[in-house]
Simulated assay, not measured.
Amino acid sequence: MIWLALFVAVVVAVITAAAVLGRVDGSLADATTTMSHVPLPDDQLTPDDIDALRFDTAMRGYRMSQVDAVIDRLRREIGDLDDELSRARQAGRALGTTATSPGSSESSESPESPDDLGGTEAERA
Rank of each mutant, 00 (worst) to 15 (best):
I2Q: 10
I2D: 13
I2E: 14
W3P: 09
A5V: 08
A5W: 08
L6Y: 07
L6C: 09
V8E: 04
V10C: 04
V11N: 08
V11A: 11
V12H: 07
A13Q: 02
A13P: 03
I15Y: 10
T16L: 12
A18R: 10
V20A: 15
V20F: 14
V20K: 11
V20Y: 14
L21I: 13
G22F: 12
S27T: 11
S27Y: 11
A29D: 12
A29H: 09
A29C: 07
D30T: 12
A31T: 11
T34Q: 07
T34C: 05
M35E: 15
H37I: 04
V38T: 15
L40G: 03
Q44M: 11
Q44N: 11
Q44D: 14
T46P: 02
D48F: 05
D49K: 00
D51R: 11
A52S: 12
A52T: 09
L53H: 00
L53C: 02
R54L: 01
R54E: 04
F55M: 01
F55P: 00
F55S: 00
D56L: 04
M59H: 04
M59K: 04
M59T: 10
G61V: 00
Y62M: 02
Q66E: 10
V67Q: 01
A69V: 01
V70E: 00
V70C: 00
D72T: 07
R73E: 02
R76S: 03
R76Q: 06
I78N: 05
G79Q: 03
D80L: 03
D80P: 00
D80R: 02
D82E: 09
D82Y: 02
D82C: 02
D82W: 01
E84W: 07
L85S: 05
S86I: 07
R87E: 11
A88H: 09
R89N: 03
G92L: 07
A94Y: 09
A94Q: 13
A94C: 05
L95A: 13
L95M: 11
G96L: 05
T97V: 12
A99C: 08
A99Y: 08
S101C: 10
G103M: 06
S104M: 09
S105M: 15
S107Y: 12
S107T: 14
E109H: 14
E109L: 14
P111F: 13
S113R: 13
S113E: 15
P114N: 12
G119R: 06
T120G: 11
E121A: 15
A122Y: 15
E123P: 06
E123Q: 15
E123K: 07
R124G: 06
A125N: 14
